[in-house]
Write a protein that binds this DNA or RNA. Structure first.
Length: 798
DNA sequence: GCGAGCAGCGTACCT
DNA sequence: ACAGGTACGCTGCTCGCG
């Protein structure tokens, strides 16, 4: 019997000859699919009913669905051992049918077959499988392990692609408008463009017609035979478009390893396209995910902007192209260049994003394709499911819709934020608790199965809410979290030494980053309404302990004579006053002496100067979550100000930054005022370029779903009228122009804006952004009012 | 009829 | 479709004033 080794990539299933097989995509020298017979199953809690359930058969759609066999098993259910009936089914779809027919409590019925298989065999993506097989069928798994060196031997081939379409109306219509170019890049020398009109570029391959182009691309793909295919918004645009064109041209979009096209997948709210035998990574949802967790901060989620943000490089900008016009004129050199450029940029972006996705995939036991479409909640869920199965604990079920809505209606009290006193301060120390919520969860063993009722025996920790948690053996949540943090601590040591440019270092760095992302998502998952592990009492205890610890640290700081300027969740801003750094560090040490082992208050940094401003309404109060600090090394840390928000124009943001710098670095009120005056003059002169005036705002609903009018929506609707596609999630780039009465009427897409309204930019953008800071320098409300009734704040500078 | 004041909606940010 | 806490702009309404 042949014994082989291969890297595991993905799993699904097939049903043949009355048997369900797990179908594994593996890669040794080349990619293969293996079959392994494995019956789907679920559990039922029905003592004494095993015989009855074993004989269950129900008719569904003219077919008889039968229980295949049953087995009595012992599992841990909510922290207690219990006898359950394991019900095996013929095929995965039977699980749902039989579960609904059984009038007892059932468990683990809502788990995908492929996931079930991976969990039960503890096979993680990119692990090495050694197996014996006969034909395609695996008889035995000899060994399953993760080994960095073996893994590195298997090179995953990657390719990026991009298409151009004929678009006389702005947005192309897939049944009517042809695709005119398909470009690809494999990261090396193989790259090019398929099209079907004459072109002088050497990398262009001219086919006879659109069908020839489609076929040519598919043939090229088969030749390169990549394991990973990168696209940008390819699940929603490129792939469905190509498929529609293939249909119109009566050909097959043979991009899968079995010659098929792709399957549309819905994972939560996002769409995916699964290409058989390969891992299709749409970088757009991946970029959105990175934006959501705060890894990148992009103004717009276009390929260009994300590329620039992720790689730090500038993408060669081509002026906006009218693809249809160039196609009609036969003027294709520039278009081909542009198309190839997009594939190359997509490839490079993919290479930037892939390492983190790979590590997340391995850590959460989720195939790469699924990982690329996952929310952080799904990643944490997968991780906890893995830990549960390893321990023999029953995986909690997802809540029903009604339950989820009920949970959502009752939010959990969150963190404490101290009201700062507005002003400019010198010599500040900032401390924060390292991983506050994760460390609380581990320290106090916060887990639904460890929650004890009044009067229960055993040593417990009592949270400020009164909830009690059993000490001793760690629950699934704290144990998983501790594993992540321990892994990360080990990696951090290795990362201290080593060549930062080496592939090994980058891999470990990505792994460390993945661990951090996962650890930071645990608390959110505990309080997430649709979570399998949701527990109100647990989530409340996490935040209550958090508030307790930050209050306690603040009180101790004050007792030591420090003034606490500000605090938010896990951070503490202390005014050093007459005390020096030494005393601050001594205070830190004393706090840490009395904290649980996993918790630690750390020095974030010392700052020579910091600014807190007042709220716009209620000017006597300081604004929370808004401050600017000058560190000793000269760097400036800015939080919350307009200048860090994408929904403010850069003319306002740049001016605000100038003012903050003048104050922090030089303490110069005159310089600050001068900067503002200059901007106002520039705006009045009408010479400010559109880019500096553009405001970016995301639409979180479909345009037609809004009940109110807003500038971004008004601009979006004008764009729609021109044939542009605007959907849920689109970022609208708009400018306030001169034409119209209300601000919304004046709003126009940046690319169509011919002029701008200086009054708006002076009075609604620049002045509000800078006045709150200048006020801290003595330009107060009264001083302004003493100048008489004014038409605008702007005239103050005249 | 008009501006001030306010509620509600919506977005983006902080930790 | 991961949590809650927060600031603040724009719109559209009510209200008081003249």
């Amino acid at each position: 019997m042949a014994r082989r080794k291969a890297v595991f990539l993905d799993a699904d299933y097939t049903f043949r000859n009355g048997k369900t097989y797990a179908r594994l995509l593996v890669k040794g020298k080349k990619a293969t699919r293996l079959l392994y017979p494995y019956d789907p199953y679920f559990y039922c809690d029905a003592p004494g009913k095993e015989a009855e359930i074993a004989g269950l058969a129900i008719s569904k759609g003219g077919e008889l669905v039968k229980v295949k066999r049953t087995e009595a098993v012992e599992k841990v259910l909510r922290g207690e051992k219990r006898q359950l009936i394991k019900i095996y089914c013929q095929k995965p779809a039977d699980v749902v049918v039989l579960r609904q027919a059984i009038p007892f409590k059932c468990y683990e019925h809502g788990i995908q077959y492929s996931k079930r298989f991976m969990l039960d065999f503890d096979i993680t993506p990119f692990a090495i499988l050694e197996y014996e097989r006969e034909g395609r069928e695996v008889k035995k798994f000899i060994k399953i392990w993760e080994d960095e060196k073996l893994e590195a031997q298997v090179k995953l081939g990657r390719l990026a692609f991009d298409i151009e379409t004929y678009n006389p109306l702005g947005a192309p219509r897939e049944r009517k408008d042809p695709a005119v170019m398909i470009s690809y890049a494999d990261g090396g020398s193989d790259k090019g463009v398929f099209t079907y009109k004459p072109n002088s570029k050497p990398f262009v391959r001219m086919e006879q017609d659109e069908k020839g182009m489609l076929d040519g691309f598919c043939k090229k793909l088969a030749e390169i035979d990549p394991d990973i295919i990168y696209g940008y918004n390819s699940s929603n645009f490129d792939l469905p478009y190509l498929e529609a064109r293939a249909q119109v041209q009566k050909t097959a979009l043979a991009i899968g390893r079995d010659g098929t096209s792709f399957r549309k997948i819905k994972k939560g709210m996002v769409n995916g396209a699964k290409i058989t035998g390969r891992m299709h990574i749409d970088l757009y949802p991946a970029a959105r995910f990175f934006g959501f967790i705060g890894l990148i901060k992009a103004q717009e989620f276009t390929l260009e902007k994300i590329y620039e943000e992720m790689t730090g490089k500038k993408k060669k900008m081509v002026k906006r192209l009218d693809i249809w016009d160039m196609w009609d004129k036969g003027d294709l050199d520039e278009l081909a260049e542009y198309s190839l450029g997009d594939s190359e940029v997509t490839y490079e972006l993919g290479e930037n994003i892939l390492p983190l996705l790979l590590e997340l995939s391995k850590l959460t036991c989720m195939p790469l394709f699924d990982t690329s479409l996952s929310t952080s909640g799904q990643l944490v869920e997968s991780l906890l499911m893995q830990e549960s199965v390893r321990r023999g604990e029953i995986i909690p079920s997802k809540p029903g819709e009604a339950e989820a809505i009920e949970r959502q209606k009752n939010p959990i009290e969150g963190a404490f934020v101290k009201l700062p006193e507005p002003g400019i301060y010198d010599n500040i120390a900032v401390f924060d608790f390292r991983g506050l919520y994760p460390s609380i969860i581990i320290s106090y063993n916060i887990d639904p199965s460890k929650l004890v009722k009044e009067g229960t025996e055993g040593e417990v920790s009592t949270s400020p809410t009164g909830a009690k948690f059993l000490k001793g053996e760690k629950g699934v949540i704290p144990a998983s979290l501790e594993r992540l943090l321990d892994l990360r601590a080990g990696l951090k040591k290795r990362l201290k030494t080593g060549d930062k440019e080496s592939p090994e270092y980058r891999r470990l760095y990505a792994r460390s980053h993945a661990l951090k992302i996962l650890a930071n998502s645990f608390y959110g998952y505990l309080g997430y309404a649709r979570s399998r592990w949701y527990n109100r009492s647990c989530a409340e205890s996490v935040t209550a302990w958090g508030r307790m610890h930050i209050h306690d640290a603040a009180a101790k700081a004050e007792a030591k004579g420090f003034r606490v300027l500000y605090a938010d969740t896990d951070s503490l801003f202390l005014l050093l006053g007459s005390r020096g750094k030494k005393e601050a560090l001594a205070f830190l040490e004393e706090i840490n002496k009395n904290l649980p082992e996993k918790m630690e208050l750390e020095l974030e940094n010392f700052y020579t100067r910091g600014v807190f401003v007042s709220k716009k309404q209620e000017a006597e109060k300081g604004a929370k979550k808004k401050y600017a600090m000058l560190a000793e090394d000269g760097s400036i840390k800015i939080r919350g100000f307009e200048l860090v928000r994408r929904d403010w124009s850069s003319v306002a943001k740049d001016t605000q930054f100038g003012v903050l710098q003048a104050i922090l670095r030089e303490g110069s009120k005159d310089k600050a005022v001068k900067i503002v005056k200059e901007t106002v003059e520039r705006l009045k002169g009408g010479k400010v370029p559109i880019e500096e005036l553009t405001i970016y705002t995301q639409l979180t609903k479909r345009p037609e779903d809004y009940d109110i009018v807003s500038p971004e929506l008004a601009a979006a609707k004008k764009a729609q009228a021109r044939g542009m596609q605007v959907e849920k999630g689109s970022v609208i780039a708009y400018v306030i122009t001169k034409s119209g009465k209300t601000i919304s009427e004046k709003a126009e897409m940046a690319e169509h804006a011919k002029d701008y309204d200086p009054d708006y930019y002076i009075n609604n953008q620049v002045m509000p952004a800078v006045m709150k800071i200048l006020k801290e320098l003595g330009y107060d409300e009264d001083e302004l009012k003493n100048k008489g009734k004014q038409k605008s704040l702007g005239s103050f500078f005249e």
